[in-house]
Design a protein around this nucleic acid. Structure first.
Lengths: 252, 252
DNA sequence: CGATGTTTTGACTTCGATCAAGGTAAGTGG
DNA sequence: CCACTTACCTTGATCGAAGTCAAAACATCG
């Protein structure tokens, strides 16, 4: 288009290079004051974030990347309760005790860590923080309700479609071909644990989606959906998900 | 409040004798100031509580009885996302939009209703209310995590045992025979929707529990568990549930 | 007493879990 | 650069737990 021949016209294809626009205009922007009070935690995949700090309850605010809360009531019965996206907040008391709860990073990213007492005081004295926290909690609860219904009532194809749509809406970038391209930072086992499915069943289901042309894997840990509305048609929760993470403030 | 000699409620059954300490020392006592600012709503079974009030978001604080949040993404695919017990708080934004979310009363009870803006201001100016709200939200999230794991990973017997234990812990009264006696205000369909089960399967499962002597129904909408630890042994979530609703404030 | 709604039970079907084998990728050390 | 390990993913065959459909039993109530 333009005449710039020499200028580096690089298209940031690499995952780490430049965060997609969508990731930047995060759901609710995190009050910048928070950064000055919290400890910055850089996460690597699989890294576990402690729920207690010298015995005191912690709070995490996700800046980039993705966290997950996993509980396990018995050997081999693990459930990923929640996925936390940028702009989300996690208070340690959200996790049940006596359930081997683990908060861990799904991939590389950054989070701010506070003691709950400190965070709570900050919120009490700063309306912006208070609002941020309350909005985040409300949004996450609404998302959890969708997740609950999906795990409780959807069949395996619907669950997988729901999950893919959720990812695409949160981290998707318009691909050159017109579809949405997004990272899938979780491995099969974790996705299965999130969806309440068996890993084998999950794999089969995704294979079927791939076979039907709805989904493709340009590379490992990456998904490409050519026709988002076709994917959305597979899950009853499509509209609710879009209202939540997609365009603008949640409304009917 | 004034009760004529006519029975205002149902006939006070046997458990009336000792109103169970557990029920009295409710999870977190509701700040009494709230009553002066909120509208008192008396609920009847099945009554629906509106999420909006003149277009403004609402908040409910449960004083007695029980509420439930139900979502339905498609015809015949209903999921009861959450049960709200006395001391719990529900903000309308916790429900996903575009999901036919309905907050309704499970039985007779009382709730305080606020506009979110008003409630939020109250919390900002009154630390006791702020703490109450934050504690309630945290506790409910922890409970939701257990529920999530149950629906995602437990088999039908484990789910039913989990549900019964939850009820017994929340509303159970020591029965003369030594067991725990509690109300089961939900009908089979609602329980099934809460547990992500089919109503027929649920009925079968409860019949089996009854046959094994673990559970009995002294009367309709009532359950009696003679040996609580035997019931607890059936669900992997027993310890987590007890830590939550049982003894003392939520902490590790 | 029938009328109505809820719960239980039985017979049958199905979806997804399980078990087991093979495939792919990426890293590792010779 | 190639065997070798390790971790992750895919696929097939089989089986059982839970869903579906239909009818009977039970409550509740006018």
């Amino acid at each position: 288009m333009t005449t710039s021949s020499l200028k580096a016209r690089e298209v940031p294809r690499q995952p780490d290079a430049v965060p997609s626009e969508r990731e930047i205009e995060a759901p609710q922007s995190i009050p910048s004051v928070l950064a000055t009070h919290g400890a910055l935690v850089r996460t690597r995949r699989g890294q576990s974030l402690s729920l207690l700090l010298d015995g005191a309850e912690t709070v995490y605010v996700v800046r980039s990347g993705m966290l997950m809360l996993r509980v396990a009531f018995a050997e081999g019965m693990r459930q990923v309760v929640t996925l936390l996206y940028p702009g989300d907040v996690f208070r340690a008391a959200f996790a049940p005790t006596a359930a081997s709860a683990r908060l861990s990073a799904v991939g590389a990213g950054e989070a701010l860590r506070f003691r709950w007492t400190v965070f709570s005081d900050l919120a009490a004295s700063n309306p912006e923080i208070d609002r941020f926290y309350n909005d985040a909690v409300a949004r996450q609860n609404a998302r959890a309700a969708i997740h609950m219904a999906a795990v409780g009532r959807f069949d395996c194809r619907q669950r997988v479609a729901t999950f893919l749509l959720e990812l695409a809406l949160h981290a998707g970038a318009r691909a050159p071909c017109g579809g949405l391209d997004f990272e899938i930072p979780l491995n099969r086992t974790d996705i299965a644990d999130y969806l309440g499915l068996n890993a084998d069943t999950l794999s089969r289901t995704m294979s079927r989606l791939r076979a039907s042309g709805l989904l493709s894997h340009p590379e490992r840990h990456r998904g490409l959906v050519r026709d988002l509305s076709a994917l959305a048609a597979l899950t009853p929760a499509a509209r609710a998900l879009m209202a939540l993470s997609g365009d603008g403030p949640p409304q009917a």
